[in-house]
Design a protein around this nucleic acid. Sequence first.
DNA 1: GTGGTCTAGACCACA
DNA 2: GTGGTCTAGACCACA
Lengths: 118, 118, 118, 118
Amino acid sequence: MLINLNYQSRTPIYEQIIDEIERYVVLGVLKPNEQIPAIRELAIQLGVNPNTVKKAYEELERKKVIVTLSTKGSYIATNITDIINEKTSNKINEIKAIIKELEQLGISKEEIIKKLEN
Amino acid sequence: MLINLNYQSRTPIYEQIIDEIERYVVLGVLKPNEQIPAIRELAIQLGVNPNTVKKAYEELERKKVIVTLSTKGSYIATNITDIINEKTSNKINEIKAIIKELEQLGISKEEIIKKLEN
Amino acid sequence: MLINLNYQSRTPIYEQIIDEIERYVVLGVLKPNEQIPAIRELAIQLGVNPNTVKKAYEELERKKVIVTLSTKGSYIATNITDIINEKTSNKINEIKAIIKELEQLGISKEEIIKKLEN
Amino acid sequence: MLINLNYQSRTPIYEQIIDEIERYVVLGVLKPNEQIPAIRELAIQLGVNPNTVKKAYEELERKKVIVTLSTKGSYIATNITDIINEKTSNKINEIKAIIKELEQLGISKEEIIKKLEN
DNA sequence: GTGGTCTAGACCACA
DNA sequence: GTGGTCTAGACCACA
């Protein structure tokens, strides 16, 4: 699991970690019930403060992407279909929003789709 | 020129001002060589500090969307086709990037386009 | 006499007018005793406020580049050799200053002169 | 890193800070990846407002002289050869421009170079 | 601790 | 009136 961080991005590090882990879940690289690295371990690997990783894991837990068993570590949740569906529909909505903006500029949906094929 | 600000957004106010002005330029509401409000005037109208508007205008100048003449005010640049084209192609590229992500999840371009039509 | 103004320059308009007139004097385009445009006239021609031209003329008078005869208009001074010499030596000194900076960067005078020939 | 400020100069303070830092980069005093002082720290050291230093750092970042990592500080960019080359060629061009002006006054390049040697 | 954003407001030069 | 610069300082998120 290779997590790329961009320190110059406006997106905070902890959120980038969340995004990356969710991405691997959705891609199937991280599978249900699979254990993910311990907070301290990942922090060292990424060269960030353990609190930053902790914050990411807490948020992932809240979103039910992972489950943390106090002394046993953190695991990908059993049921991740919700996550996948949510991610997918989010992305579809993002595209729709951009298309709406383009249409306001007088570009038709057909033109946009044609441009997408190049 | 109606500029809407969202104080809760993560996008800073000065950037929202930039976005709104660029939007009006692209929409053709603000035309080449047209004078835009004085910094202080817009600041009062928006209820923000002049420095915040100044920062937006500085960035717009850097992007060659406007031209500022000391003591004479700020004007939409003469040539804004670059801006319009850039904006459009940026948006197309954003869509392409999201589509690529979706494809990595095993969703074909055809499926995506079908979803966009709902 | 074609005076070019750059409204985006940090150099104030009145100073640009001074520079341009001095340039024409040094170039011999404006000759000793030659009459120069009336303040109001030049202001209209340049599209600037008469006060701005007035400020330039006052400064030129102070530098003895021009002489203003209250109701008769403004004239290039009789003796302008000082002006020419001063301008020339100023420029030589500017070059020397830049060369000194380049030398501090480890570039020898010989190298600099070679680069100047390209 | 000793930064000298001239409060009487027409060059704004933030620009003097930029120039000084660039000078130290070009001189090799500040090296790639080296951390530069925190905004507040430098502000205190120079006796200026943090916003002024911030403005300088922003511009340096835009010019890719430094890289700023939120919460981690600012660092000299990894690749600064462009900066050095640009600075050098800028200075050469400045000299060329002045020489051109002098030539217009009827002074030959040879004469100019001779004057430079005194 | 570090940067990012913003307010409030002053003072200046210039036009 | 218009922009340019700067101070003083607050509050925030993040690490």
